[in-house]
């Protein structure tokens, strides 16, 4: 049987490989050593990031290339952009995607635009890993899925894996991309275990994956909602409906071809996004289907999203907030 490791371990492995293979790769962020590197006190390794994804890097690669930053998201992301533009290949960790609120300028106005503004004379090979999404009882300021913001900024790419194997391969590709990539890590998946190949491999950005074949309806998801979609597909199968599940994996570039292909195959589509409904990936996918896949549609495109509210704390409410398999099943059943 192939080796099984967690999502977090897969990311950790990708970081080790990327740093091993390229001396220009550096890693920086809040608590990414987390106090590790205090050899005089016998503390070689400590937190390794809030999720432990950077554990061991300080020990393996030293304090020059693995840096704890001040709690200055704007400052260290700007520093990472400057380093990327001048020859390093930084991987910055934005502890929670919600902190985009205090750090947007280096991504919005710098990383995303330098190449265009400079007429192509610069490369900004920056990866920003960021933990996001609900399900951890972390409430309104530590649970958002703000990829809608980064997807809307030309010059950035945005990636969101749903399995440990994809996390490793997509992260290696993101780090080696010569432009800025936002790498979303769904909090609720970090302890998921899956088969992950050994060694170095890349998964291209902009390629969706069919994770379950089906013929009656297409369910499009990303990150955590892929898992929910698969659960719904199981239940639909028991009800006699064959659902195909497409994992977008990359939100920009988005694999429009794959979305239209599955729609053409099944004739109906439900898109599941953990974000609030407005200006979301769900609305984007729905618009694509109507604009370019109208002739394939046998039924309206359905969106299953979070409500237009902040993420609540109370576990009862939070569970209602996140799109559920029940909602997906109901949306599919409403199509026929």
């Amino acid at each position: 049987m192939t080796r099984q490791i967690t999502f977090t371990e897969a990311i950790n492995e990708a970081l080790h490989i990327a740093m091993q293979n390229d001396p220009d790769v550096i890693v920086l962020g809040e608590d990414i050593c987390g106090g590790g590197g205090r050899k005089d006190q016998g503390i070689e390794d400590a937190w390794g990031g809030i999720m432990g994804a950077t554990r061991g890097l300080i020990k393996a690669f030293g304090p020059e290339r693995v840096r704890d930053t001040p709690i200055s998201e704007m400052g260290f992301l700007g520093t990472a952009v400057g380093a990327a533009a001048t020859g390093l290949r930084p991987v910055a960790e934005l502890m929670f995607m919600d902190f985009l609120g205090v750090s947007l300028d280096p991504l919005l106005n710098q990383a995303a635009k330098l190449r265009y503004m400079f007429g192509g004379k610069v490369r900004v090979p920056l990866t920003v890993r960021t933990s996001m999404g609900a399900g951890s009882r972390a409430a309104a300021q530590h649970s958002q899925t703000l990829y809608g913001i980064t997807v809307g900024i030309p010059g950035l790419k945005t990636v969101i894996p749903s399995t440990p194997a994809d996390a490793k391969g997509l992260l290696l590709t993101a780090i080696r991309d010569d432009g800025p990539v936002i790498f979303c890590e769904p909090k609720s998946l970090m302890n998921d275990v899956g088969e992950v190949p050994e060694g170095d491999y890349e998964i291209p950005l902009g390629k969706a994956a069919i994770v379950r074949e089906g013929s009656d309806v297409s369910i499009v998801g990303m990150g955590r909602t892929v898992k929910t979609a698969l659960e719904a597909a199981d239940r639909l199968a028991a009800l006699g409906t064959s659902a195909e599940v497409l994992d977008l994996r990359s939100l920009h570039p988005m694999d429009e071809e794959a979305i239209l292909a599955t729609l053409q195959k099944t004739g109906s589509l439900v898109v599941v996004d953990e974000s609030p409904p407005r200006c979301s990936i769900a609305s984007d996918v729905a618009a694509l289907c109507v604009d370019q896949g109208f002739d394939y549609l046998n039924a309206p495109v359905k969106k299953v999203t979070a409500p237009h509210t902040p993420v609540p704390f109370s576990p009862v409410l939070e569970d209602l907030y996140v799109p559920s398999a029940d909602q997906i099943v109901a949306a599919v059943r409403a199509l026929s």
Binding site: I26, M74, F76, T79, T86, G87, Q110, F118
Partner: peptide, 23 residues
Amino acid sequence: LGANGIVGAGIPLTAGAALTASI
């Protein structure tokens, strides 16, 4: 490394360029 239309934005970029020189 560019003029910059956002007041203050060049300061972390400068730190980043210095980080490259340092590493």
